[in-house]
Simulated assay, not measured.
Amino acid sequence: MNELNRPQGAPGWITLAVVLLLALLCIGVVFYYQEQNESLVVYCAHDSIFSEKILKEFEQETGIHVEPRFDTEATKSLGLTNLIIREEKYPQCDVFWNNQTLGTADLKARGLLESYQGAGYERIPEQFKDPEGCWTGFAARLRVYITNTDQLAAKPAAIEEVLAGPLNEVAIAKPLYGTTLTHFTVLCDAWGLDRLKAWFAAQQKRGIQVTSGNSQVKNLVAGGACRLGYTDTDDYFVAVDEQQPVAAIPITVEDKVILIPNSVAIIKGTHKRKQAEKLVDYLLSEKVELELAKSQSRQIPLGPVDWEQVPPDVKQYQSEIKNAYPLTNLVKPREQTLAWLKSEYLK
C-alpha cells in the first residue's frame, strides 16, 4: 500500500487495543490470584475454643486459609449479626457461622445472604434449614432447666413448685442476646408479645436474677447461689465435667423442646464463592457434627450420623430432634421481641 494512502490513525488504534487487552488480562489475573489466595473471612459466634480447631482442620484439608472473627460472650451472635448489617454496602465477611439460627434468618430477610444447596444442605432435615438455601442449621443445643441437685431434684413437679414461688434463687441470662433471645422469641410466637411481657415482668417482680450470660447462670446454680436456672446443654455439660452437683431437663413450649442449631450462611457479595461453598459443606458434614458432639459442648447432630460414635450424654437427646419447636418462620416474632428488649435494656 502506498504510504500516502495508509489510514493515518491505524497504528495508534492498534496500540490502544493491545494495551487494553493486556490491562484486562492483568485485571483478570489479579482477581484470580486474590480469589485463590486471600483468606476466607469467617464471622463466628460459636465458642472459639471449639470452632477454631474445626476451622484449622478445614485449612489443613483444603489449603484455604481462614481468617475468623469471634464475638464476646455477652453480645454473642447479635453483635456479629449487626456487624454484617452495618457492612451491607461493603461486606467484609464471606461466611457467617452463627451459634443460633434466628439472627441468620433475619439476615436472609434483609437480602444479605446467598443461596447454596450443596451436599451439606441435603443431609440436614427440612425443619432445620431455610427452604431457599440461604442458611442451614447443624449441631444443636437444647434449652434446659439446670438444677443444683443438693437443693432441688431435676423433676418437672419440683421445678414447677419453685417457679410458682419467689424467684430470688432462680437465674436467667439477659434475654437481649444469644439463645435466651431465641427462647423469648419462641415464647413470643407461642404466647404473643403482650403475654411474654407480662410473664417476664412478673418474673422480675418476684426476684429472678438476670445475669450477663448462660455461663453465669450455670455458675450460680453449680455454686449453690441459685437452685434453678435457664441455660443450654453446652453450659450444663461444663458443670458436669467440673463434677458439680447439677442435673438438667429440657424446657418445653407448647409441648415442644427448644432445640437451637448452629447455622452457616454465605454472605452476599463474597468474591470467594467457591471457597465459601467448600467451608459450608465442611461444616455441614457428618465429620464436623460428630466432632462437635464429642467436644465439651456436646452438640446434638441433626443430620444422619453413626450414632454409635455419639457420646451417651448426647445420645440421650436423639429422640428430641423430631420434637423441636419450628424455628424457620420466626423473623417477625424476633423483630417484635428484640424491639421490646432494646427498649428495656438500651434506654
Rank of each mutant, 00 (worst) to 15 (best):
D71M: 04
P261Y: 02
I84H: 11
E114D: 13
K197N: 09
L78W: 02
K76Q: 14
L78F: 04
L330T: 13
Y145N: 01
Y317S: 06
E59C: 00
W191K: 03
A293G: 01
Y121P: 14
Y90P: 07
Q316K: 15
T149L: 09
P326T: 05
K76P: 01
Q244D: 06
L187T: 10
T185Q: 09
G12I: 13
E73Q: 13
Y121F: 10
G63N: 01
V162L: 04
I27N: 11
I258T: 06
A248C: 10
Y43S: 12
L283R: 06
L78N: 07
K108E: 12
F96R: 04
S215G: 07
P311H: 01
K287S: 00
V19S: 09
A173M: 00
Y236H: 01
S285H: 02
V18R: 06
E160K: 12
T62L: 04
D313G: 08
E57D: 12
Y90S: 15
T75K: 05
A324H: 08
L346S: 07
Y121N: 08
S77H: 11
Y116I: 01
E344Y: 06
T15V: 13
Q296A: 10
I27F: 14
V253K: 04
K272C: 06
Y90E: 15
L20Q: 09
T182V: 09
T75A: 11
Q296D: 10
P68L: 02
I124K: 07
N37L: 04
L283V: 05
N168V: 12
T180P: 00
Y116K: 06
T15R: 15
N98D: 12
T72S: 15
A276E: 02
Q318V: 04
N82C: 07
N214M: 09
Q275K: 15
T72H: 13
P311S: 01
Q296I: 05
A324K: 10
Q203R: 15
V66R: 07
A74Q: 15
W13I: 09
G192S: 03
Y90I: 14
Q336T: 11
T147Q: 04
S212I: 08
D306Q: 07
D189V: 02
T15F: 12
D150A: 11
L142M: 05
R86S: 15
H183F: 15
Y33Q: 12
V314T: 11
G207H: 03
G103C: 00
V288N: 05
V221M: 00
H65Q: 11
K197G: 11
L16F: 15
G9Y: 11
V288L: 03
A339M: 00
S263R: 03
Q8M: 12
I159N: 05
S295F: 04
V264M: 06
L327F: 05
H46P: 06
L55Q: 02
P11T: 09
R69W: 07
K89Y: 12
Y230V: 12
